[in-house]
Nucleic acid binder design. Structure first.
Length: 750
DNA sequence: GGAGCTTCAATTTTT
DNA sequence: TTGAAGCTCC
């Protein structure tokens, strides 16, 4: 077993320990994934049937990576038999298998966060509550944390302490929303993300035969990132492992940064209580970073009370000290960092992909984008909307969902009138009210108007019937046609494809391309099956519902600087890391200052940030930054002081009168080499607001004008007068538009 | 139904 | 500042 030779002694011990409960505390950069994959390979090589192994991760990416690594060692055909995936995807599959036990059909829909919010919003509206007080996002997070603690709506209502909290925050009816939400999800044959774990718990609790089956199937269970498990996940793992107790959990309490989402660090701290005879392994040698970085990170995390004792060390070089930079403004911070990347690249000849800028909040990215653009440094922002969250993708997928599960209310709402087919909001509202009154799913209602009279006009009714026929036609093909056939048919005959094709604005073109890309992806999926295997649209949805990361490494060819939040950087590493915005109220976040636990989580976040760096790490803070459009002064973060100064190198602060301040920033620095879009954007921002009012009166027929959104166009004619005066313009690419003169922002070009 | 205005709020977010 | 969502007018 050659792969074992690559392990150091403590890694080796952990990877080759077979029986019984064990916990691996893996410091940052200590080869955690390597141990996990080696252990699985070791089990298989020692005769354990891959079929009996369950490995749970938190991200698809981690699961994919592990699967690949294991394939490389034991071969793909063996690796394939390991049950490996995210908690959500593994248990979603198990739930599909036993859905009938819970009264669900096996083709249940998985609601994403948007769906959940939208449903909660309609419930709030239907109950006549104020959505200023009952904010859908807040309500959802209350419900979510209840579910993660295995509290059902009925139990929620009975827990006086929980209800009291809601009453204190002026939301006494929250339990009723939860109840409604629970019912509506059930009626729609839908489970949200939390349900996948919650219902798995119900399944294992209420059906002993199911529990026993999986207890005996999974002889070996491995859990990655154990510090991020919530109570619901903890209990599933505990139950499944109860017979064989061959449970191996791997994690790092110092890197727990998702408590705000219900992750319970106690799970790792209490492992000992559940399994008193457990074996503890510690991976303390860091292979990633220089001594300075490792020691600096240690000195920071030492300020946390709540932690498992360990000493992370490294044999790597001492390396450079961590640089601390102070700038006057956020824009200057951006420029300083961009310049530093430029200089470092010049000096070392490294790729841009060796550099990362990490920040606490997404909003901070702007200054860095601008500065990097001006220096023509390619970058990529991680986070933001992933492919599957784009509206056009969600719309098309909503058709797929509706075809597979017509009770899916959220999918129904999305597509019933998209593309426009003359079924308006009031009609839809009437349908929803009627479906509530009749106590039936909305699809049953509209399929059977003759049976359930509804007060809507004949025109709308026949349009709905047409819609029903269209969806039913696809439904008929569901089990006989490959996913790609139906998908392409839907995209075409629903009108979505044409609608986006006809939109020639840059956004429209991009949207159409996205749809094409999705269809191509489905085609690839359909073709990926074994000989003679039919992969249906339902199979595709099963795959796609839990895929959130875009992982489109299409533009890999250009190495790019990475920009991301620290949360998003977990698990990654870069030779050069810039941690920016190290200011009180930003990092640590203002919201985290109230409790010790929150502050400790921020500190762990900082620890994660520091330990991303391999060679050079730079910290920056600004004395002044724009916050919500207002300039705000700021203090350096306490975290800087928490680093032992022996590992720091403070840049000489620039003098306040050094000129390069606020107002000069943008216009002065725009150079001829700057990217087109960059300079264009700043020109638009600089232009005085009322400019167009003066200009519009000068416009004559035949003039070529520029419109902010539609681009260049030619004035065809005028209509009306005074404040109603309209202008008809032909835009290249956007066609003819009639605009109100008083609103249109036009600029005469000749 | 759509365009364009006003208004309001504003961490982090593996699924 | 940005953006989403609501409102108003054709």
């Amino acid at each position: 077993m050659e792969f074992l030779n690559e392990l150091n002694p403590s890694q080796y011990e952990a990877a080759t320990h077979v029986e019984g409960p064990m916990m691996v505390i893996a410091g940052a950069g200590s080869g955690k994934t390597k141990v996990l994959t080696s252990r699985i390979a070791y089990l298989i090589e020692n005769g354990v049937d891959a079929f009996h192994i369950l490995a749970l991760t938190f991200t698809n990416k981690a699961a994919r990576e592990m699967k690949n690594r294991i394939s490389n060692v034991v071969g793909e055909s063996e690796a394939k038999n390991v049950t490996m995936g995210t908690f959500h995807s593994v248990f979603a599959r198990i739930l599909r298998h036993h859905a009938d036990r819970l009264g669900y059909p096996s083709n249940f829909t998985i609601y994403d966060t948007q769906d959940s919010k939208s449903l909660i919003k309609s419930i709030i509206k239907e109950m006549g509550l104020d959505d200023k007080i009952y904010k859908p996002g807040v309500v959802l997070s209350r419900i979510s944390s209840a579910k993660n603690n295995l509290i059902s709506a009925t139990q929620y209502e009975q827990k006086s302490d929980i209800v009291a909290v809601d009453r204190m925050s002026a939301k006494p009816q929250l339990y009723l929303i939860y109840k409604q939400y629970e019912q509506r999800c059930f009626k729609a044959s839908a489970m949200d993300f939390d349900d996948l774990l919650f219902k798995t718990n119900l399944l294992l609790r209420d059906f002993p035969d199911v529990l026993q089956y999986y207890q005996h199937r999974f002889h070996f269970i491995l859990v990655d990132e154990y510090q991020d498990t919530n109570y619901s996940q903890y209990l599933i793992v505990k139950k499944l492992a109860a017979v064989h107790e061959n449970l191996c959990v791997v994690g790092d309490d110092a890197q727990s940064i998702y408590a705000f989402r219900g992750a319970d660090i106690e799970n790792i701290l209490n492992f000992e209580k559940d399994y008193p005879d457990y074996k503890l392994f510690k991976l303390e040698q860091n292979y990633r970073s220089t001594k300075n970085i490792v020691e600096a990170a240690n000195s920071v995390i030492g300020n946390n009370k709540n932690q498992i004792k360990k000493t992370v060390w490294t044999q790597n070089d001492t390396g450079n000290k961590i640089k601390v930079v102070r700038t006057l403004t956020d824009n200057e911070e951006g420029r300083w960092i961009a310049n530093s990347i430029y200089d470092n690249k010049q000096a070392s000849g490294e790729l841009h992909s060796n550099f990362a800028i990490l920040y606490r909040t997404n909003a901070q990215s702007r200054a860095f984008e601008e500065a990097l653009r001006k220096l023509n440094i390619p970058y990529r922002i991680y986070g933001g909307l992933s492919f599957y969250q784009r509206k056009e993708i969600k719309d098309l997928i909503a058709y797929f969902r509706l075809v597979c599960n017509p009770n899916d209310e959220e999918a129904f709402k999305r597509v019933i009138n998209y593309p426009k087919r003359g079924i308006g909001d009031s009609t839809i509202d009437t349908l929803f009210v009627a479906s509530q009154n009749y106590q039936i799913p909305i699809w049953e209602l509209i399929e059977n108007f003759h049976q359930y009279p509804v007060n809507i006009n004949g025109g709308a009714k026949s349009k709905i019937e047409q819609f029903v026929m269209m969806i039913n036609r696809y439904r008929g093909q569901l089990e006989t046609h490959p996913a790609s056939d139906i998908a392409e048919d839907i995209a075409r005959s629903s009108g979505i494809s044409k609608l986006l094709y006809d939109d020639k604005s840059p956004e429209g073109v991009a949207r159409h391309e996205n749809i094409q890309e999705l269809l191509a992806g489905i085609k690839e999926f359909s073709d990926s099956g074994e000989e003679g295997e039919l992969l249906t649209l339902g199979d595709f949805l099963l795959d796609v519902a839990l895929l959130t990361d875009a992982d489109d490494d299409k533009d890999k060819e250009t190495p790019r600087v990475s920009l991301m939040t620290i949360h998003a950087s977990k698990g990654l590493e870069f030779p050069h890391v810039y941690i920016v915005g190290l200011e009180e109220n930003l990092f640590p976040s203002q919201m985290a200052l109230h409790s010790r636990a929150d502050l400790e989580e921020e500190r762990r976040l900082f620890y994660v940030a520091l330990t991303r760096a391999e060679k050079k790490c730079t910290l920056s803070y600004s004395m002044c930054r724009y916050l919500y459009g207002r300039p705000t002064t700021s203090e350096p973060s306490r975290f800087i002081q928490e680093i032992d100064p022996a590992y720091l190198e403070i840049e000489v602060p620039n003098k306040p009168e050094s000129g390069r301040s606020l107002n000069l920033a943008r216009p002065v620095l725009s150079t001829p080499s700057s990217g087109l879009s960059g300079s264009f954007k700043s020109v638009q921002q600089v232009r005085p607001m009322n400019d167009h009012l003066k200009k519009n009166s000068d416009i004559k027929v035949g003039h070529v004008v520029m419109h902010e959104k539609f681009g260049k166009g030619k004035v065809l004619s005028f209509e009306g007068a005074g404040s109603d005066k309209k202008v008809k313009i032909f835009f290249a690419g956007n066609g003819e538009k009639t605009l109100l003169m008083k609103f249109a922002k036009l600029e005469v070009l000749d």
